[in-house]
Amino acid sequence: MENIWKDITEETLLNEVQVLRADKYRLVQQCARKTEEGNYELLYSFGKGYDAEHLKFQVAPGQSVQSISHIFPPAFLYENEIHDLFGIEIKDITLDFRGGLYRTAVKAPFA
């Protein structure tokens, strides 16, 4: 069982994800966290058999991120979650709830 952690950038995200898809990886999870500097760090995890590869990249507040849901279909749920909890705009999600997934009392509570 291998665990690879890899730092990437938002620009190379789609390329990296395409490569993983072609290599028959599956999507494990996507999440975000706010860094001490006030940026957002996104963490996407993929799996193949028992191995895992984690991609990490940072975005500035207000910056939007390209969706990977057309490459990995289940991504739409994780991306809607990130949008609802962190207020990060994710472009071209295959099924976009437009902020209606959790309908929280506080908008973007983790932002």
């Binding site: 494990v28 999870q29 999440c31 966290r33 001490e36 279909p73 289940p74 739409f76 749920l77």
Partner: peptide, 20 residues
Amino acid sequence: NGKKFLERMRVRTPTFANIP
């Protein structure tokens, strides 16, 4: 980050993954 309070705890649960 070396403090008493964590920076982030995130859980991905199986039913979330099973919805699609």
